[in-house]
């Protein structure tokens, strides 16, 4: 992580600035150590043992790596869902990022009704209760519900036909097209998952000093050039933020397949659910770390 905000040379002594820094993060450290770390460590212990509930309360018998080896090698369902959800998320991240940045740039311009559309696109954030959507999906009971869904489906069907045409006429690789078709049918989900990112991008866009754009106009740069030379680089801290947010949000949403399995297992086989979660969390953490390293290096902070 290269920070350009702090130019101080590192020394072996703890300086006054260091102490101030520690004081600022102290509340979090207390919270992390006392409220989170302890339960987390205990759950790691559980993951290496067998937890049984008897009349005398809870007994914890160590069993070594059994839970982990079972999750990785014997439980076909878990591993399959883990892989499929990772793949799905990997495909969704760029789409959500692109969509939200695009929408933010649109909504950042001056036009009539901007306020209205900004509000509209924030609505999914308010309703982002998965249950809210699931209910609609689950209640495919009435004729009317089905009809309403059909009208959304019909729109995407037309698009799908168009895409199939594209394959036939232009010889695009069919794998790419099937992925595109999936996106089209998922457009609803993508809209509903991008609300916060759009807001973050708008704030990021607004933070770019306007004089830079004035200079660009004076120099005769096209909009395209201005975007790549000014907007995109200066948006990089926001891109990093949105990227990490999107990853965590997708991996941790209660409707995620793996999270559903874990929650279900929590009821009876806590030790196994703990092992699953730690495997999962480690994978997500590694992924976030890689993305962070890759993007943070390139992030530009106006200093």
């Amino acid at each position: 992580m290269k920070d350009k905000t702090v130019h101080k040379k590192r020394s072996h002594f703890i300086t006054k600035d260091d102490i101030a820094g520690y004081l600022f993060v102290l509340p979090f450290l207390i919270g992390f150590v006392f409220l989170l770390a302890k339960p987390m460590l205990e759950s790691i212990v559980y993951s290496f043992s067998e937890v049984l509930f008897g009349e005398g309360g809870m007994t914890v018998n160590p069993v070594g790596l059994e839970n982990y080896s079972y999750a990785l090698f014997s439980d076909a369902d878990f591993f399959k869902k883990l892989i499929s959800s990772v793949i799905e998320i990997l495909w969704n991240i760029p789409v959500i990022m692109f969509f939200s940045m695009f929408m933010a740039i649109l909504l950042n311009g001056e036009f009539v009704g901007r306020l209205f559309f900004r509000m509209l696109l924030f609505l999914p954030v308010i309703f982002a209760v998965p249950a809210f959507l699931e209910n609609i999906e689950a209640a495919g009971m009435g004729g009317r519900m089905a009809e309403g869904r059909d009208s959304v489906a019909a729109t995407s069907d037309t698009l799908q036909l168009l895409l199939t045409d594209l394959v036939n006429n232009f010889g695009l690789p069919s794998e790419l097209v099937s992925k595109l078709q999936e996106y089209v049918s998922n457009i609803f989900d993508i809209c509903w998952k991008s609300g916060i990112q759009i807001i973050l991008f708008i704030i990021g866009l607004q933070a770019i000093p306007s004089y830079l754009y004035e200079v660009c106009e004076l120099e005769g740069a096209t909009k395209w050039e201005t975007f790549w030379k000014i907007t995109f680089p200066l948006l990089s801290p926001t891109i990093l933020l949105c990227l990490i947010y999107t990853i965590i949000d997708l991996f941790n949403s209660p409707s995620n397949q793996v999270i559903t399995i874990i929650t279900a297992n929590m009821g009876q086989r806590i030790h196994y659910a703990c092992a699953q979660t730690w495997l999962y969390s480690l994978a997500v953490f590694a992924f976030v770390l890689i993305v962070y390293r890759l993007v943070a290096k390139r992030a530009i902070y106006l200093d």
Partner: peptide, 21 residues
């Protein structure tokens, strides 16, 4: 390290630590 702890605190699903908590 503190920053990694911050990230860790949002990555680990809260259900994991349910019983100890």
């Amino acid at each position: 390290i503190v920053f990694a702890m911050v990230i860790l605190s949002i990555i680990v699903p809260i259900q994991t630590a349910q019983i100890p908590m």
